[in-house]
């Protein structure tokens, strides 16, 4: 990929390929193990409940080994390709961690409060100032409240704030 020159590589394509193959391998083993809780057999009624998932797991395991083998066969070329630079990884991390917080807090705090905190926090953090942060958060909360609670009738998770305000 076209990484900028100043960004020192963190992961080579080879490492990421092998990591990907490892994830697929783990997935395949999990699926095959899970399938073994059901009969993996062929009766005159055709395949039993566990048969399809079991073989899917086996195919995933074999494919992961094949992918790892292909990657290792071209390890010189792939090891020289950087796919993720330090700066890029940092940007992804800074973007990803707040999403983890958003997901973790959405149910206990209610999605409205969480989205307000998330939006205001992200905008402040990116240097957009208090006014823009509060305005964006307030607009998003008000719009989604009217859209989802009234218009689409799709209630979003609510928490202590809404209960305290007596809104539901």
């Amino acid at each position: 990929m076209d990484e900028s020159t100043e960004d020192s590589p963190l992961l080579s394509r080879l490492a990421l390929e092998l990591l990907g193959a490892l994830v697929v391998l783990g997935f395949g083993i999990t699926v095959a193990m899970g399938a073994l809780e059901h009969p993996v057999a062929w009766s005159d009624q055709g395949p039993q409940a566990g048969t399809l998932p079991f073989w899917l797991g086996v195919i995933a395991i074999l494919a992961s080994l094949g992918i790892a083998g292909q990657a290792l066969a071209q390890r010189r070329v792939l090891a020289a390709q950087g796919v993720l630079g330090r700066q890029a990884a940092l940007r992804i991390g800074r973007f990803l961690l707040p999403i983890v917080a958003l997901v973790a807090l959405a149910v206990p705090l209610g999605l409205y409060l969480t989205m307000a905190l998330y939006l205001a926090g992200m905008l402040l953090w990116q240097g957009h100032g208090w006014k823009a942060a509060l305005l964006t958060a307030a607009a998003a909360v008000l719009f989604s409240w009217f859209a989802f609670e009234h218009w689409f009738m799709l209630p979003l998770p609510k928490g202590p704030i809404e209960a305290w305000l007596g809104l539901y």
Partner: peptide, 27 residues
Amino acid sequence: PFTVVAPLIVVICAISAWSVASAGFDL
């Protein structure tokens, strides 16, 4: 700026994932 647009898209995605089955697990 994309730094404003991206968090808004995240919120839209979270709302939609929730509205499929009203389950926190889906998030």
